[in-house]
Write a protein that binds this DNA or RNA. Sequence first.
DNA 1: ATTGTCACCGAAATCGGTTTCGTGCCAGCC
DNA 2: GGCTGGCACGAAACCGATTTCGGTGACAAT
Lengths: 359, 359
Amino acid sequence: MRAPKQRRTSLKELSAHLGLSAGTVSRALNDYSDISAGTRERVRKAAVELGYTANPLARRLAMGIAEAVAYLLPERHCSISEPFVAQLLAGLSEALVRRNWDLIVIPSVPSEDAPEMIDRLVTSGRVSGVVLSRPHKHDARIKLLQDARFPFIVHGRSVDHENHAWFDVDGTEAFVTAVDHLVGLGHSRIGFIGAPTYYMFGQMRLDGYRMAIRANGLPADDGLIQFTELSDDGGERAAHQLLATDNPPTALVCATDTQAIGALAAIRSLGMTPGHEVSVIGYDGLQLGRHTNPPLTTMAQPQADSGRRLGEMLLSVIDGGDPKDFQELRSAELLRRKSAGPNISGPTVAKTKNRRKHT
Amino acid sequence: MRAPKQRRTSLKELSAHLGLSAGTVSRALNDYSDISAGTRERVRKAAVELGYTANPLARRLAMGIAEAVAYLLPERHCSISEPFVAQLLAGLSEALVRRNWDLIVIPSVPSEDAPEMIDRLVTSGRVSGVVLSRPHKHDARIKLLQDARFPFIVHGRSVDHENHAWFDVDGTEAFVTAVDHLVGLGHSRIGFIGAPTYYMFGQMRLDGYRMAIRANGLPADDGLIQFTELSDDGGERAAHQLLATDNPPTALVCATDTQAIGALAAIRSLGMTPGHEVSVIGYDGLQLGRHTNPPLTTMAQPQADSGRRLGEMLLSVIDGGDPKDFQELRSAELLRRKSAGPNISGPTVAKTKNRRKHT
DNA sequence: ATTGTCACCGAAATCGGTTTCGTGCCAGCC
DNA sequence: GGCTGGCACGAAACCGATTTCGGTGACAAT
């Protein structure tokens, strides 16, 4: 009833206003060399006066460029890692907005539908690139995108990460650091609460744990390892399992902070004090960890600008860069709070010397 | 080097393959009545065989419909509420994908840039609707969208919510419930840790608190009210402030769960036990609250399907529905865990009878 | 046999841009 | 003066669809 929907000025109107042809105006605005400096400026001025900007839909169709990239939402049961999603999207969209590109969000689909989803994405022409996160070790989506020769970048890695662009934090290194820290505190029975190993990050964090256990000359005991879902509930259950054995660990490293928070609760519920009888180290660097009981020692990910970097790198790949040139590995760093303390139990190591389950 | 980029089949190719004109094929696929049933089926079949789907960019241009909506990311310092963003986006995109519409994410901008941002969104033609969240009481973006007569829906409300579509949880009611619960537990000095009141949700939760205080015949004491940022740090600081007075509250209600978690930490750091000496009720229903120390009693939001509802309602508005017909209010419900217990301190009420700070 | 109707489809305009190609004009040069 | 060569711009094709309009053939009516 009030102001009508703002009508945008079209190229045709602008060119009529200037007494020029549409093609000329278009070339003037796009810095073609066959336009005189005079008219170029005249066109520029008129464009801002009339508030002209090219209709993105028309331009995208004409140029055959989507000017948009897709972000594939992680699976729903990864939901606890969601605090990062918003940060990531903010960074991503900021990187894209500089080119006036759009970021479109694609809901996750059951893995059997992945081929169809990728195909739609690739052939529809809606997007010129894809960001995918939380990759599986053998991720069907990655293969499909590679086969289609479609630009993409992975937040994380896959077993085939030699051949694609990615941005990741070194989870293996982080768990070596975490275990080393606990060993330095006198712990020798260190449990591992892990994520499903079909996730690449789950595997790598496990690798780091195992490497560090061996490097420190500790016995490998699969009884100290529990895989569980990515939630506080999962962490709590796993911690209960590990602590209920006859020779329980004195320290736990967890694949995520939320699991670690569940582990803290489990320890308290057994009448023990986390960071005293049983130490806990998480992974993520959640802000919330500052106010858990006790404050959570954790491997903090440097992910302030990961979204922006992912965006920039993907744009480079879309521009024709070799994906192999865009692989970036960051390090997590130990954030010492209060949940990891010195081992106060006696030297139980000897007891376990020759004790091994499976294998 | 392997398979070339999948070329999509165009309408022209499909029509050539069929020996029909492009227009006819298009109308056949779009159920025009002037196409014989025979050819319609023939076209349908050929379309699936050749894997034809209309190029979205071309269709959008031709029809003048963006087939996409924008989600405006909340401001960065709202970051702690981010766990919800991913859920919301998942729901939203699922609602849109049924129509084959896209969800595009717009980074937040400083409020002085809001007019330009909204203008670009409205005139660019990239989107046919907007979802905005965490609205301010007087939100410039809302006014701009209204003036432009552009379809939008608000996740939350504004002072002008009579006149636009929205989806919200009743924060006022929730805080009445929370305060009533505490009063029922014998508390009479109940503190409030709030969000900035330029946010509509901040104001409404405060309103609920004040209403319930008055309704229970308790003295209004602004010394029991602290506004702070939406984080655990903010909650901790605010709780410290409130508990450091000579006549501290025996219970706290917090505008968000993260603030409440900070408050729990503050109480512990003062040597007291949350849920015993001082009770705490949060708001959100974060999963993590199950494993705080003690488990956090909270007003749980029913937001499993809020994203989907927002999407559906926005689509209805875009389809020409009256925004006033699409306003939906949900209720939060009290989730009793362990952080709110009976008042164990003496009847300190009398002492405060005539004590009032600021007015 | 001519006309009118209806069912069905082709041709062409359109959406709003980009890009290729061609052309008029003027300067330079022999 | 005529020829060449740029410079600067216009005309038109094109991107890949949708939609309007008009036309053809069959068939019934007169």
